[in-house]
Each structure stands twice: as C-alpha cells, then as structure tokens.
C-alpha cells in the first residue's frame, strides 16, 4: 500500500475540519488556523491544502449556500471522510509511540 504522507499544514487543516461540528469552507478553516497557531495564512494556501486533501480522499466536498457578503457566490463545503479519520488516528498513534519512547526524566533534565 502506498504510504500517505501528510505535511504539517495538511495535518492541521485536516484536524480543523475534523474538529468542526458541521461542514466547513475556506474562511472558517483559515480563521481557526490563525487562532490556533498565531500564524497568518492566505486564502490560497488554505484552498490548495483543502483540495489536495480531497484529492487524497481524506475530505469530501459539496457545494453550499451563497451569501450576500460573498457577492452571491457559493461555498465549497468540506467534510471528513472515513479515510481521513483513519489517517488522523494513524498519525496520533505514531506520535503516541514516539512520546512513550522518550526516556523518563529526560525532559525534566533539560529543565522543562
């Protein structure tokens, strides 16, 4: 099986979509990212990532309602797929393993 590699931004975006209760589109994802990381992202970066995740099968998308402030344009709404959920779990598991393999007391030694 082809191993799927997720970049940092991809992982973050996937998590943001997973964390939201409804389907989301570009702007809320971007704002959420900004709040969480304190970094600023451009619309284009977020869109690119969302589409890439969809292409990989981790997100699915549908066309949503238009509002006046968008000049009557529709939204593309994204939702997590089963494959997306699985890859998140995989990543978490792998991280967990790594965390557990840190020798006890090592971080304390560094004064953390």
């Amino acid at each position: 099986m082809k191993k799927t590699i997720l970049g940092e931004l991809e992982e973050l975006v996937l998590l943001v979509v997973a964390a939201s209760s409804e389907d989301v589109y570009g702007v809320p994802v971007m704002e959420q990212l900004q709040v969480l990381t304190g970094r600023s992202f451009t619309v284009s970066a977020v869109h690119t990532t969302l589409y890439r995740l969809e292409e990989k099968g981790f997100l699915s998308s549908s066309v949503g309602g238009a509002t006046a402030e968008r000049g009557g344009r529709r939204k593309r709404l994204f939702a997590l797929t089963a494959a997306g959920g699985r890859v998140l779990l995989d990543i978490q598991q792998m991280r967990q393993q790594l965390w557990q393999s840190i020798p006890i007391g090592k971080l304390e030694l560094l004064g953390l």
Binding site: V43, S44, H47, Y51, A66, E69, G71, R73, K75
Partner: peptide, 14 residues
C-alpha cells in the same frame, strides 16, 4: 475553482 476562492476572498475582505 474561481467561484469558491473568490467568494472566500471577498467574504474575508468585508
């Protein structure tokens, strides 16, 4: 792609 990205950009703009 245009409709969605432009919509997002404008929403953000306002």
């Amino acid at each position: 792609l245009l409709e969605y990205v432009q919509g997002d950009l404008q929403e953000l703009f306002y």
